[in-house]
Amino acid sequence: MKKWITVLAVAALAIGVLSGCGSSSEDKAAAAKAPITVTEGKDEGAVLRIAAQPYPLYTSVYVAHNLGYIDEELSKVGAKATWTEFKSGPLVNEAVAANEADLGFMADLPAIIAKSQGHDISIVSNIAYGEKALAVLVPSSSSVTSVADLKGKKVAYAKGSYAQHLLAQLLEKEGLTLDDVQTVNLNAAEQVTALTTNEVDAIVIWEQYITKLTSAGQARVLADGTGIKRGNMINYFVTSYADKHPLVVLAYLRALNRANELIKSDPDKAAEVTYQNFGISKEEMKKVLKNLTFTTALNDDDIKAITEVKDFSKKVGIIQDDVNMDNFIDKRYIDALSKK
């Protein structure tokens, strides 16, 4: 019976969106945002293709994956998952655009860029946030002592990543723009090599690399996101997939909530089961976890921060087309779980 209720609910939603020429765009948007009321049942044979990134910013997802929480929760609704790893958010976006993935998790900016380019995606939850988990690093011996000193210098970051947004904000505070530095577009691993071989003057990078490089004495933090950038990591689903498979979305979020509870109650175990995924020691992993708060909740501060990223990115030209955040952020799934 629950299975049929689920099918009917999804069908009714589809009919509401596709029906009659007399429906206004506002009516269609309202129908698309109808509350998720069916939270139990089966979606037999559904497959969730997860596009992952091996960074401790997403520790909760890796805990859920490594400890089998995702498989367990999906199996309860008759579904299963596949798992493919990518080196950055922009590469995840490419996989989603090529219809090779249904779910991507990443930082705020690459998700916003994808949406601004017309991708059929919706943010359904937070993963984590942390102002100190993203930073500008310089070699320990560098003469650079302020962001203003970066003018004319070679600065490496992954274009389209949330590192680009932090750097743009930091430069703006000094009356500078991205055009005032020599941009070198490198992925995270390439940035480490470039910094340690003095090929660039600075890098803008995230954890695990901040802890790894500073602990080894190879770099120091010039500036991080403290007081500037909340640094939200989010989950987005392909909207059409989520509409068709709401029980899969809810099962995935349940798995993450289980992982979040473990991180809070037993951070040592969380570090133990994930540190090898990120190429750092267990002790380094424990340090990294202190710089992040893991939660699926999307509260007012999170939504404000993500919206500010969008507004700033539009202002400085990182994105060309604006994004309707009311349509982009879809809290229906986490709201449904919170009512259980």
Rank of each mutant, 00 (worst) to 15 (best):
Y129E: 13
Y129V: 09
L134I: 14
L134W: 10
V138R: 09
S140L: 12
S140D: 01
S140E: 07
S141N: 05
V144M: 03
S146I: 03
S146N: 13
D149A: 03
D149M: 00
D149W: 07
K153N: 10
K153P: 04
K154H: 04
K154I: 00
G160F: 14
G160A: 13
G160M: 10
A163I: 11
A163H: 03
H165E: 12
L167C: 07
Q169G: 01
Q169K: 15
Q169L: 11
L170Y: 01
L171T: 08
T177V: 09
D180E: 00
D180L: 07
N185L: 02
N185S: 08
N187A: 05
A189K: 13
A189Y: 09
A189N: 10
E190W: 02
Q191A: 05
Q191I: 14
T193E: 14
T196E: 01
N198H: 05
V200N: 06
I203E: 05
V204S: 12
Q208C: 08
Y209T: 02
I210H: 05
T211A: 08
T211I: 06
T211L: 10
L213I: 11
T214D: 03
S215C: 01
S215K: 05
G217W: 04
Q218Y: 04
Q218K: 15
A219N: 02
A219I: 07
R220V: 15
A223F: 00
A223R: 14
T226D: 07
G227K: 09
G227Y: 08
R230K: 11
G231K: 03
G231D: 03
G231W: 00
N232R: 05
I234R: 04
N235M: 08
N235G: 01
Y236F: 15
S240W: 11
S240V: 13
A242N: 09
H245Y: 14
P246W: 14
L247G: 12
V249Q: 08
A251V: 10
Y252D: 00
R254N: 10
A255W: 04
N257A: 09
N257G: 08
N257W: 06
R258H: 04
